[in-house]
Design a protein around this nucleic acid. Sequence first.
DNA 1: TTTTTTGCAAATGGTTTGCATCCTT
DNA 2: AAGGATGCAAACCATTTGCAAAAAA
Lengths: 152, 152
Amino acid sequence: MEKRKSIHPKFVEKFREYLKSNGFKLTSERKAILEQIFAYDDHFQAEDLLVRMRQDGYSVSRATIYRTLPLLAKSGLLTEVIDAQKHSHYEHIHALQQHAHLICLRCGKIIEFREPEINALQEAVCQTHKFRPMKYRNEILGYCFECQMDEI
Amino acid sequence: MEKRKSIHPKFVEKFREYLKSNGFKLTSERKAILEQIFAYDDHFQAEDLLVRMRQDGYSVSRATIYRTLPLLAKSGLLTEVIDAQKHSHYEHIHALQQHAHLICLRCGKIIEFREPEINALQEAVCQTHKFRPMKYRNEILGYCFECQMDEI
DNA sequence: TTTTTTGCAAATGGTTTGCATCCTT
DNA sequence: AAGGATGCAAACCATTTGCAAAAAA
């Protein structure tokens, strides 16, 4: 858990645009969730968000969180990461940069890394196959340095 | 569904070694599953395998299939691919080559592609982070050419 | 006022598991 | 023998969904 931060207006604007252009409405619940996901800089699961929001005094139901997270992902503000148990984790975008993840199978830690060359290659593959990419999954599951030390 | 094919002995040998070195036993059920996954060259889910095995006259329970698939994946003979619904799909290895996937969000089709440069870059990232990779996930979700034509 | 959204609680469904029995080694 | 494996059916549990009430446009 990290320090709370305020949200940049451009993110609110981006979400508002996404919703409007898809015939959805910007409700107070959606806005609260949006603000909350930018209030901290770590990875989280739907349930984490629920708990954190309740602690921070917001009142949003679990169902609404589960319904809103995919919207935020589709709007491009959130990135979904799937762990070894196939559970969804999320993180908000950092300055619109793509990045991938190393996921530790032992401690669950998620390490980010950036590799623009990989992104470029992936885009090239899509062009070759006339495939319209919506989402890139780039995850490496394995053991982080600390957990290797602890002997599996 | 494609034509049945027989399994190369080296795969049986590889699985046997994996099991032995981990204190597991090679049972007739595990061997039947191993043979079955190499009998066809397409992607499948646990349930598909169950149905197909029953059609082909094998008798293996759903539980055993669910317990065996991860063993085959860990032994390196199977690759797991996760679709948009977070369901596991599998495919047997083709001559030990790594490859990645384009997954259509509309028709569910899975297209394979090979991109050795991406693999090399991923390995480099692991080295940098002293991360011991066990499994690479390289999936691009989006729309295949045909489904783009059909207008989403 | 028309359409979407919310919250609740119940349902979902791929996957996992407890346990008695069976099979490998 | 001894320990792992199987099959069955029940349990899991993150996520989804039906529906009536509430809010946005």
